[in-house]
Nucleic acid binder design. Structure first.
Lengths: 332, 332
DNA sequence: TCCCTTGCTGTAATCGATTTCAGATGAAGT
DNA sequence: ACTTCATCTGAAATCGATTACAGCAAGGGA
């Protein structure tokens, strides 16, 4: 159970710890003779570096922290997977934290990541305003990139999709399928995704002449349950229901099915994110595909390039995936 | 950006670093006078401990590593969430790694967790035999608990469900619903869950006189796609299809729907795990609910209690959740 | 008055790997 | 033979927090 230290390797090889370090880390020049002896000794003893000691010494841990609002939301899960993959390619590792959609828990997580000397932090903030102080404070100490969601009034890099452009595609597609009125089911306006998507929806609906009534704007959580409940709350049925994410949309189609409302004949429904289960809905969901791998790659790149005085806001244009919950066959 | 060290706090408060440490960590006696001065100085400078340095000093990091086969599988995700929650209550944090169902990647992750001095490791091994060496080697150095799955021939603690008992419930329930023959769709026999579940299925099927033909045992991956494909591969239809997890079951019911096979009237289908989406299938899946929170709590408890010479194997009895993909109304 | 506690505080060692700096060796050049 | 360099090694400092140990002062008892 005792860990082997560099000193023991040095003793066994009959050299100094400096030489051992040089051999094993590959920097500095060491004669082939010594190198062999050291490697042999390290091998025999089963030596492995203590990365805590190394981290203390050179101030970097090779670790990136990531904080997401909810690890059970498949969208964030797949984002985490992408980020982990990209980091893996640079030999870095991921510290994953779940904020449980609570800005206070989020703040604690961020502080603890700072204390643990991660080299950078990727965060998808839980709340559009309340997450602000903690995020900004953290960003002042470490490279930090916001992902997907964005907190108002913070000065950090950001990567996500262009929600406005996405909603334009969605609305146009529904319109092409014959919709003349539409409802929006989203989450309470406590984060930027939700706001942006609602905003984009409203704008494009106005431009295309779609009827949108105030009672048709329903805000709750990013959950299947809320989607189901929202349908019950609609005073009457519009031609289409635009959902702020796929979980909500799955709830909406499920509720429609159990109320005997035909989708897409009577009501067209759209989701957002293109999680794996979107295609498993009945009917399969038309939704907006987020380019996760690209988002992850950009985020990691920005973390590495941190330090420039100017902040980057990278918004990628997502792609509409047409399935069976809408009527038009073309993306727009 | 510069981090404040204990020395700076000491200088500002006009005391030694020892005193600062004693005040801030609360151990050792310090006069109220000094304590106030120190706290004041720490506050002013925005001091935060460097947990790397602390970890180096006292050999513990307050961190637990967890390795799962696939973070995109909702079952593992919810398990991670439970574990994270339990750890959070003891002030520990979780280092999450995704093995991508590859024992080699898994071995690398385990080694890196050891190098990072985590206090313990929770792993759900990817492969029933190939994961063995890495898992055993890791367990020899650190407290380690296997979760859900188990590697043959390793000597470590384990927590999971009693797959045999679960399958007994499943088979009895299908039998009660009128099934007289059944197929099994699982994953290739590369992990204990799969083996145990198939074994349990076979045994109980034999005991209850259910017909099981060899061509009805189909093994692939834990994915929706495989479930869909498996249906196409069945030479003819049994009365029931028992799936080794919910993802497979979702694929199976989806394929049945698109082939016009009525579930549960023509074929009954069952899943395993009770992931959130199980109830969203069409029809909603009858499945086996895994007591995640309890599994997580036991795992964390075992990690803490490590050191005893004897190994604990804790198997919890899961509960059958009856929904619409089967015919009988009672659990058994 | 002197010794012994008791209660605080500071000095310095410690954890393990890395790296600076100085010293040693040997080869090549004049 | 004497420099001059290049090449390699090792001693010791360093990162930041913790803690064993020693020292000091005040108070009590003999």
């Amino acid at each position: 159970m005792q860990r082997v230290t560099i000193a023991e390797v040095a003793a066994r090889a009959g050299v100094s710890t400096a030489t051992v370090s040089r051999v094993l880390s590959g920097r500095g020049q060491v004669s082939e003779d010594m190198a062999r002896r050291v490697r042999r000794a390290a091998e025999d003893l089963g030596y492995q570096v203590n990365s805590i000691a190394r981290a203390l010494r050179d101030g970097r841990t090779g670790t990136v922290g990531m904080v997401v609002p909810s690890i059970t939301n498949p969208f964030f899960t797949s984002l985490v997977e992408s980020v982990e993959h990209v980091l893996g390619q640079e030999g870095k590792e991921l510290f994953l934290c779940d904020a449980r959609s609570d800005p206070r828990i989020e703040a604690r997580r961020l502080a603890s990541l700072v204390a643990r000397n991660v080299d950078g932090i990727i965060v998808s903030p839980s709340h559009g305003t309340e997450s602000g102080p903690a995020v900004q404070e953290t960003a002042d100490r470490l490279p930090l990139v916001q992902l997907d969601r964005f907190v108002a009034g913070t000065d950090t890099d950001w990567v996500g999709v262009d929600d406005i452009a996405a909603m334009r595609q969605v609305v146009d597609h529904l319109h092409a399928g014959g919709a003349r009125s539409a409802a929006f089911v989203g989450s309470r306006l406590t984060n930027s995704s939700s706001e942006q998507r609602l905003d984009g929806f409203r704008r494009r609906a106005a431009e295309t002449g779609l009827t949108v009534r105030d009672e048709w704007i329903l805000l709750g959580d990013y959950t299947v349950e809320w989607g189901e409940e929202a349908v019950a709350r609609l005073p009457d049925l519009p031609d289409a229901i635009v959902c702020a994410d796929d979980l909500i949309a799955l709830g909406v189609t499920r509720a429609c099915r159990s109320h005997g409302i035909d989708v897409p004949a009577r009501v067209q429904v759209t989701g957002f994110d293109n999680i794996e289960f979107a295609r498993l809905g009945e009917p399969a969901l038309t939704t907006v595909d987020q380019p996760r791998d690209q988002i992850a790659a950009e985020a990691v790149r920005l973390l590495g390039a941190a330090g420039g005085a100017s902040r980057a806001h990278i918004s990628l244009v997502p792609r509409l995936v047409v399935r069976d919950s809408t009527r038009a066959k073309e993306p727009r």
